Simulated scan of single mutants.
Amino acid sequence: MSQSFSAFVVDKKADQHTVEIKQLELGNLPKEDVLIKVLYSSVNYKDALACTPDGKIVTAYPFIPGIDLAGVVVSSKDHRFKSGDQVIATGFEIGVTTFGGFSGYASLPGDWIVPLPSQMTLEESMIFGTAGFTAALAIAKLEQNGLTPEKGKVLVTGATGGVGTTAVAMLSRLGYDVIASTGKSSQADYLNQLGATAVLPRTAIYDGKIKALDKTQFAAAIDPVGGNQLASLLSKINYGGSVAVCGLTGGSKVPTTVFPFILRGINLLGIDSVYCPMPLRKTLWNRMATELKDSQKLAMIKKEIPFQALPEVLPKLLEGNSVGRIVVKMV
């Protein structure tokens, strides 16, 4: 089958680095078991890094970024999928070592593909994307470690980002008292509309000083920030509480002490959405389609752009001014 399509291609030769929309053929794609017509993708921080010369995401060029995609199966050698099936693919090696979602078509292993839940649209799946899936996984891990709405306030840091906004909306829908932390004070009303009962400046969590133990304030936290802020918020978690850490926008080093762990029994939970096992992945996507989904709030989180706008939008994501989720309409 010969068919041309548009793809967002990153290339690097010697000192020359280019990002452009190009016309490719199906033969340019890897020969995996399932061919998908991509209808939606989304923009993530990792995608923006993949488009920079020194982003340390792409290892072989030319390359098609895009760690999220949703679309319709065109053909399949995998018995689990047939032509016409609506599917989602996030994580694994998509958009990192395997051509990703910023493309008219994607060729992927069946083991990386999730059937679209019946109560979710393809567009909704990409409003969630990796960010929403990460938030859902963090909530599930916190619940496994004893979190319930009755336990107290749940803090979400980096609350205007993709993980943050989806986490606030999900936790609110489940009945939690959600406290949002952000460096964007102008977005307080927006976060309140998503379900936050209070919005704190990031300085309320980390003011430049890290205490071994501080006054307890939160039953749990979802933290995509890391760094000094994570070290500081650990000292503010209630006895037996947990922090789900899922990012490092504030840095990769966490200068904490053992005291929150050995004197208050705090749990530090690592959240890896990339290689999450498929059974749990499917369970979470089905939960995201039902009890974790608020369609009105999803619409608030979403900003939709056409595929052709990617070259302009991606660099801006690295400036840290993005709010919510950017969905890419491929056709």
Rank of each mutant, 00 (worst) to 15 (best):
T18R: 12
A14L: 14
T157E: 07
Q23W: 02
G247A: 05
P115Y: 01
Y190C: 03
C276Q: 12
G265T: 01
L298S: 03
N267L: 12
L280G: 03
E143M: 14
P30G: 02
N44A: 03
A131K: 00
K211L: 15
D294N: 10
S172N: 15
I205A: 05
S118E: 10
A131T: 00
L284C: 06
L29F: 09
V243W: 11
G320Y: 01
F8D: 04
P30R: 05
G71F: 07
V331A: 14
L280A: 12
P311S: 09
T256L: 09
G324S: 11
T148L: 14
V331K: 15
L269I: 12
L191V: 11
A169F: 14
E150P: 06
L194Q: 01
D47P: 01
D47T: 08
L263P: 00
T98S: 09
G91T: 11
K184T: 06
C276S: 14
N192H: 13
P65T: 01
T182I: 13
N192Q: 13
D15F: 15
W112T: 09
A70G: 06
E312K: 15
S242L: 13
A140S: 10
R325N: 07
L194F: 05
Y239T: 12
F99T: 02
I127N: 01
G250F: 12
L318V: 07
G251D: 02
P315C: 02
V73N: 06
I57N: 03
D214E: 10
V199K: 03
D223Y: 05
E20H: 06
T257P: 02
L191Q: 09
V254K: 09
K153N: 13
G240Y: 08
I94P: 02
G183V: 04
Q3I: 13
G110F: 15
Q193A: 11
I326N: 02
G101Q: 09
T59V: 10
D214N: 11
V254I: 15
K303V: 07
A167F: 09
G162Y: 05
V168F: 07
T157R: 11
D54G: 09
G270S: 12
E32V: 08
K236I: 08
A14Q: 11
T256E: 04
K303M: 09
D78L: 15
Q193G: 03
L191D: 04
K329L: 10
Q187N: 10
L116I: 09
S273N: 01
G247P: 01
D11I: 12
L194S: 02
K37V: 14
M288P: 04
V43E: 00
M120F: 10
T148R: 14
F128D: 02
L230E: 02
V245C: 12
L194H: 01
N28E: 08
I222D: 03
P255N: 06
D207G: 02
R173Y: 13
G132E: 00
K211C: 10
K184A: 10
F102M: 06
E312R: 15
E124W: 03
V258D: 13
V74A: 03
T203V: 11
V199D: 00
V328N: 07
P115D: 05
G100A: 11
D207Q: 03
Q217V: 07
S118G: 00
S75C: 13
A198C: 02
S103T: 04
P65M: 06
S181E: 06
V327L: 07
A219S: 05
L230Q: 07
I36F: 06
M120K: 10
Q217R: 13
Q193C: 08
